[in-house]
Amino acid sequence: MHRLSPGQLAAPLFTAILLLQAAFTRSAENGPSFDCEGVREGSTEAMVCADEVLASLDRKLAEVYAAALAKASNEHPPVLKAGQRGWIKGRNECWKADDQRQCVEDSYRRRIAELQARYRLAPGRGPVTFACDGNPADEVVITYFATEPPTLIAERGDSVSLMYRQPSASGTNYRGRNESFREHGGEATIIWGFDAKPMQCRQSTTR
């Protein structure tokens, strides 16, 4: 019977160790920004750990959040940190959705776009000013951001609204929490506030 020498035995063992190390490295590189060990089975975190797309979005959000945090270092009150805690709570509520995974993915994409727009981490276009209802003093100032999905920040007096682009057959259509902006050819219909009357606005000068 032929016996393997210690050197011959060590070679396959060494190869196996290298393969395990490579697999662990790939897993760490493809995983989310948080440690997947110890996450609760069936939780949103467990879903993110098991899904490469969601894990990639989590890493992207961590990167964008860090960049936003650097810009918000002197922010008082700490709106960014409070907002992130609220976002995590909202993401974890996706178990109530008909399509939980899609809800989680959409939540990540919208949060990334929000931070990029609010903290000017993505290229912007504008500001563009719209005078509303024939009153030059009633202005809405729009800045568009090249995020995914596309966003804009609208300012009216002391109020600010972040809006996301919606599918539209013609022109552009953005919607925020209680505001909306529909524009075509320099003419815009803007709703500002819950159950507010639509304003008819015309693009004026670019600041």
Rank of each mutant, 00 (worst) to 15 (best):
D158C: 00
C201S: 00
E37L: 06
R85H: 11
G38T: 08
L162Y: 05
H2N: 14
P123G: 09
L9P: 04
A146N: 09
R109Q: 13
G42C: 12
M163H: 02
E187S: 07
E179N: 05
W95V: 10
I142L: 13
T15R: 14
P150W: 08
G42W: 13
L4Y: 08
A23L: 14
G176A: 09
S168Y: 00
G83P: 09
R91G: 04
R177T: 02
C201H: 00
Q116L: 04
L61D: 02
A50R: 15
G90F: 01
P167I: 07
P32E: 04
H76M: 15
P78S: 14
D138Q: 07
A137N: 15
F181K: 00
N74L: 15
N74D: 15
S170D: 14
Q84F: 06
R59P: 03
L115N: 09
A188P: 08
T205W: 03
E45G: 05
N135I: 06
S43P: 09
A131Q: 09
Y108E: 06
D35A: 06
C103R: 04
K71P: 01
R177F: 00
F181Y: 15
S180M: 10
N74F: 14
N92M: 01
L57D: 08
A154V: 00
D106P: 02
G186N: 10
Q203W: 04
F194S: 10
Y144V: 01
A16W: 14
L162V: 04
A66R: 13
K96N: 07
A188K: 02
N74T: 14
A70R: 14
Q200K: 12
P198V: 02
E183C: 13
A72M: 06
L121K: 12
K89V: 11
E52F: 02
A82Y: 11
T129S: 11
W87Q: 07
A55H: 09
N173M: 13
C49I: 12
D99K: 04
P123T: 09
E187Q: 12
V39I: 12
P12F: 10
S161D: 03
A11C: 01
P12T: 10
Y174H: 05
L69E: 15
E114Q: 12
R120S: 10
A67K: 12
